[in-house]
Simulated scan of single mutants.
Amino acid sequence: MSASDDASVRVERTDAVLILTIDRPAARNALNPGILERLAAELAAADQDPAIRAVVVTGGPKNFSAGADIDVLAGHSPASYMASPTRRAFESIARTEKPIVAGVAGFCLGGGCELALACDLIIAADNAVFGQPEINLGIIPGAGGTQLWRSRTGSGPQIEAALLGHFVDAWTARRIGLADEVVPAERIVEASLAKARAIAAKAPLASRAAKAALGSIATMNLHAALAHEVSLMAGLLGTEDAKEGTAAFLEKRPPQYHGR
């Protein structure tokens, strides 16, 4: 395992998994432009690194992120917000091609919740609290919080989160589909890493294609999304990994994938 630190983000590599840990405990891991830009940069680099097959984003066992840094947010005008590094960073995170597991403990609010929702799987600690409290500040979510809940939970919880600022605990999040699994808080990093390692063991080209197919329904109608799925599947059939996967199945042995 290798590690580095910068801009309140700890960066580690273990096997084929990149672990990005938000590390600003005095502010409950509130997101500032430096943190978001570092996350975006590391995810962009991961997309170009064939040795990385999955990513974990976490804040550790106490808090994922209590939201955006309010001091920074309060300084924005309408024009500066539209051109802000924060918006560009969230857009970059959403475009990441590698599968991302969010390991969420404690507060996961506002921009922090939107960051978790931008990931592919959400593992929640039993102390996790999800919410979009922006309405209580006279604003609304601006990085997906009015849209991304719907794909996981349907419109009811999303409407309550956006209009009332209601919080959701870990078990409710699991019941409504916001979280994919609930684990003890002290195991949040371990459980998230285990999930990412399981993803990393699959054929990497297929994992990226599956993520692309799953995301297409958000930007395409059903007919176009189905056509995109067929196109992605057809492209995989010409890969060495697909040939290896079918050969391993027929030969009753574990496959060895190389991302080709």
Rank of each mutant, 00 (worst) to 15 (best):
K243Y: 12
T172H: 08
A203P: 06
H258T: 14
P133F: 00
P50S: 06
P141V: 04
R24C: 11
L148P: 06
I22C: 07
E42C: 05
P133W: 01
L226R: 07
D23V: 09
A89G: 04
G215R: 07
V56G: 10
E244T: 12
A40K: 07
R150H: 10
G111C: 05
V11G: 00
T153F: 02
P99R: 00
A30F: 09
A209Q: 02
K62L: 15
P85S: 12
G177D: 05
F167Q: 11
C113N: 03
A242V: 13
A125Y: 06
A128Q: 04
I140N: 15
L226Y: 07
D120C: 01
C119L: 01
I70Q: 14
A3H: 08
I159S: 15
G238L: 04
S207L: 00
A224H: 11
N32V: 14
A83V: 13
D169P: 10
V189E: 09
I139E: 13
K252A: 15
V11M: 03
A218M: 10
I199L: 02
S77T: 09
A203D: 04
A94W: 06
F130P: 04
A196N: 06
A248E: 07
L36R: 09
G142V: 12
F130K: 03
Y81D: 15
R88M: 11
E134Y: 06
I122Y: 03
A200Q: 06
G112A: 01
P25H: 08
N63T: 09
D23K: 11
A89L: 07
A203Q: 02
G156T: 12
R88T: 14
K202A: 15
R208M: 03
N32S: 14
I139F: 11
I70A: 13
R175P: 06
L214G: 12
A74P: 10
V55H: 03
D169A: 09
A201M: 14
G106Q: 05
F107Y: 11
E244Y: 11
A51L: 03
A191P: 05
L163P: 04
L115K: 00
F107H: 11
I217D: 03
D23C: 10
E244L: 11
F167V: 13
A102Y: 06
L20V: 04
A16N: 02
G145I: 05
G142W: 11
T219K: 05
R187D: 13
A173F: 05
G59V: 06
N32K: 14
R197H: 04
I217E: 08
